[in-house]
Every structure is written in C-alpha cells, then in structure tokens.
C-alpha cells in the first residue's frame, strides 16, 4: 500500500486530497497564529492600569527646598521646588560634562539637549522639577539630596545624579526620565 502511494505522490496530477491538504494546512497555520495573539496580548498592561495613567497633585504647600513624592503608574515621582543654588549649580554644568546629553523629557523633542531649562518645568518655572525617581540602571529608587552633586544617589550600584536628575557617573546609562506633566506654579501639577 505504501509503495502505491509513494509512486503516486511524486508523479500524479494535483488531486482533491492535495487541495484539501494545503487548504486545511493553511487554515490551521493562520488560525493558530491569530489565536496566539490574544494569549500574548492579555499579558500587556490592562485597561485599569492604563486608566490610572494620569494624576493631579496639589503643590500649593511646597516651599522652596522641599520635595513631594507621589506614585504614578506604580513608580515614585518626585516633585521638587528647587532652591536657587540648586538651579544655579545645574545651569553652570557644560553639556560636554554630561554622560547623557539628552533631556529625556517627555514634554519635549526626543533629542532635546539636557540643559537645565529643558530638565525643569520650563521658562519662568526653573525652580519646579518633576521627575520619575527611578534609576535608569536597573530600576532602584535613588535617594534625594545626596551624593557628590547634592542631587540623587542610587544605593544599589552607586549611580550619582545632579540636582537636575542627570547622570554624572556610575553604571546608569541615561538621565532619569521626566514624565509628561502640566504644572501651574504654586497650585497644581497634572502628571500623565
């Protein structure tokens, strides 16, 4: 019987079985591929996680030199009313001294320079500073007002950030990120 089929296989004209073989095979592949997607997609952030993507914070009581920490998307966001000294120190840094010269500010162009003004809340609001307080190395939470530059210091692997949250030295590759935000000085900030 097997002999019968092997000789037939190589020589015969395409018949109904060949057609069915191809058609069911293709249907199976397409079906399996499209069914696989929901199984992968269910693992991505769900609707409730995405819905909690925006928060509004009252910053009226935030004096100069004080910091507020809020949780946004499960991560700590630091809101700091920087002192004039901190702003001045950050302004004085040359771009060429920075390990990462990109602003990493979600409110600006993706390749904007990491100048202090680009890292702050913008012109006239230079003292206001909103940043995701997560080390860009492996996701630890750096400690505020510490380290060589009086900015942030990550206790995990020793990354040092300045008062504008820019990486100065240590294993972290990038400046800490700034979330999308809308800030009214002395009133509120909307994050997300």
């Amino acid at each position: 019987m097997s002999e019968h089929e092997t000789t037939a296989d190589s020589e015969h004209e395409p018949n109904r079985r060949d057609f069915l073989y191809l058609a069911t095979g293709m249907a199976g592949v397409v079906g399996a591929a499209s069914l696989a997607w929901p199984f992968i997609d269910q693992m991505r952030p769900d609707a409730s996680t995405l819905a909690a993507a925006s928060i509004e914070v009252d910053i009226s009581s935030l004096e100069k030199g004080s910091t507020l920490q809020v949780k946004w998307r499960g991560k700590p966001v630091t809101i700091r009313n920087r002192t004039d000294k901190e702003v001045q120190e950050a302004k004085d840094v040359q771009l060429s001294d920075l390990k990462d010269p990109v602003a990493r500010n979600a409110n600006l162009d993706a390749n904007a320079d990491a100048t202090d003004i680009n890292r702050s809340a913008g012109k006239g609001k230079e003292n206001w500073f909103v940043m995701i307080q997560v080390c860009t190395h492996l996701g630890c939470i750096p400690l505020g007002e510490q380290g060589e530059f009086g900015g942030w210091f990550c206790p995990c692997h020793g990354s040092v950030y300045d008062t504008a949250g820019r990486i100065r030295h240590g294993p972290a590759p990038y400046n800490m990120e700034l979330p999308p935000f809308d800030l009214t000085p002395g009133k509120t900030v909307r994050i997300g």
């Binding site: 992968i40 996680t49 998307r73």
Partner: peptide
C-alpha cells in the same frame, strides 16, 4: 511591560 503587565512590578 509584557512581562510585568504594567509600568512597574
């Protein structure tokens, strides 16, 4: 994000 199902663990 696919692995942790959110923006943080």
């Amino acid at each position: 994000r696919l692995l942790i199902g959110g923006f943080a663990v």
